Computed example of a mutant assay.
Amino acid sequence: MGVIEVTNIKVYAYHGCLVEEGKIGSDYRVDLKVEADLSKSAQTDSLKDTVDYVLLNQIVKEEMAIRSKLLEEVADRILNRILKESSLVQEASVWVSKINPPIGGNVEKVTIKMSKKREL
């Protein structure tokens, strides 16, 4: 088993419960960790035998572009797509962070983390 991490994917999106968040938007950071059997790709040196991190980045950007009230809903969509589109991934974790959230205080970011395993 191996691990691939894609960290600090920066996107501008329009998530949140406030109407203003849907109009103004804000900065987000997304981090991914996927676990997969990387032994074959280590031997073949072939992209088709591994988890393509270009695909992972694309999934994040596409799902972050769909407005949601809660970051949990966005994270769940990201995880579902990763497991659907990359059959090698056995488990995935995602951290979605809203930078400078509008919560009435000096807060750098709010982060939610979710994980999913492939059902056997």
Score class of each variant (00 low, 15 high):
residue 16 G to D: 01
residue 16 G to L: 00
residue 16 G to S: 03
residue 16 G to F: 02
residue 17 C to A: 09
residue 17 C to V: 09
residue 17 C to G: 11
residue 18 L to M: 10
residue 18 L to F: 06
residue 19 V to N: 11
residue 19 V to H: 13
residue 19 V to A: 10
residue 19 V to C: 09
residue 19 V to L: 11
residue 20 E to S: 08
residue 20 E to K: 09
residue 20 E to N: 08
residue 20 E to G: 07
residue 20 E to T: 07
residue 21 E to G: 04
residue 22 G to F: 09
residue 23 K to T: 11
residue 24 I to W: 09
residue 24 I to E: 13
residue 24 I to D: 11
residue 24 I to M: 15
residue 24 I to K: 15
residue 25 G to P: 02
residue 25 G to F: 03
residue 26 S to I: 08
residue 26 S to H: 10
residue 26 S to F: 08
residue 27 D to P: 12
residue 27 D to C: 13
residue 28 Y to S: 07
residue 28 Y to H: 12
residue 28 Y to M: 10
residue 29 R to G: 10
residue 29 R to Q: 13
residue 29 R to Y: 12
residue 30 V to A: 05
residue 30 V to I: 13
residue 31 D to G: 14
residue 31 D to R: 15
residue 31 D to I: 15
residue 31 D to C: 15
residue 32 L to V: 11
residue 32 L to H: 09
residue 32 L to A: 12
residue 33 K to Y: 07
residue 34 V to N: 06
residue 35 E to P: 10
residue 36 A to D: 09
residue 36 A to E: 11
residue 37 D to G: 09
residue 38 L to F: 15
residue 38 L to A: 14
residue 38 L to R: 13
residue 38 L to E: 12
residue 39 S to V: 12
residue 39 S to Q: 14
residue 39 S to I: 11
residue 40 K to A: 14
residue 41 S to W: 10
residue 41 S to K: 07
residue 42 A to C: 14
residue 42 A to K: 13
residue 43 Q to S: 14
residue 44 T to Q: 11
residue 45 D to M: 14
residue 45 D to H: 07
residue 45 D to G: 04
residue 45 D to T: 07
residue 46 S to W: 10
residue 46 S to P: 02
residue 46 S to N: 14
residue 46 S to K: 15
residue 47 L to V: 13
residue 47 L to D: 10
residue 47 L to K: 02
residue 48 K to L: 15
residue 48 K to T: 15
residue 48 K to Q: 14
residue 48 K to D: 15
residue 48 K to W: 12
residue 49 D to C: 03
residue 49 D to S: 03
residue 50 T to C: 01
residue 51 V to M: 01
residue 51 V to Q: 03
residue 52 D to E: 01
residue 52 D to C: 02
residue 52 D to G: 02
residue 52 D to Y: 00
residue 53 Y to K: 00
residue 54 V to Y: 11
residue 54 V to L: 06
residue 54 V to Q: 10
residue 54 V to D: 12
residue 54 V to F: 08
residue 55 L to D: 13
residue 55 L to Y: 10
residue 57 N to P: 05
residue 58 Q to V: 06
residue 59 I to A: 00
residue 59 I to K: 01
residue 60 V to I: 01
residue 61 K to W: 02
residue 61 K to R: 11
residue 61 K to T: 07
residue 62 E to W: 04
residue 62 E to T: 05
residue 62 E to K: 06
residue 62 E to Q: 04
residue 63 E to F: 02
residue 63 E to H: 01
residue 63 E to G: 00
residue 64 M to C: 03
residue 64 M to F: 03
residue 64 M to P: 02
residue 65 A to G: 00
residue 65 A to V: 05
residue 65 A to Q: 05
residue 65 A to T: 05
residue 65 A to C: 04
residue 66 I to Y: 00
residue 66 I to E: 02
residue 66 I to W: 00
residue 66 I to K: 05
residue 67 R to E: 06
residue 67 R to K: 09
residue 67 R to F: 04
residue 68 S to I: 05
residue 68 S to M: 10
residue 69 K to W: 09
residue 70 L to D: 05
residue 70 L to S: 07
residue 71 L to Y: 00
residue 71 L to Q: 00
residue 72 E to H: 03
residue 72 E to P: 04
residue 72 E to M: 02
residue 72 E to W: 05
residue 72 E to N: 03
residue 72 E to A: 04
residue 72 E to G: 06
residue 72 E to C: 05
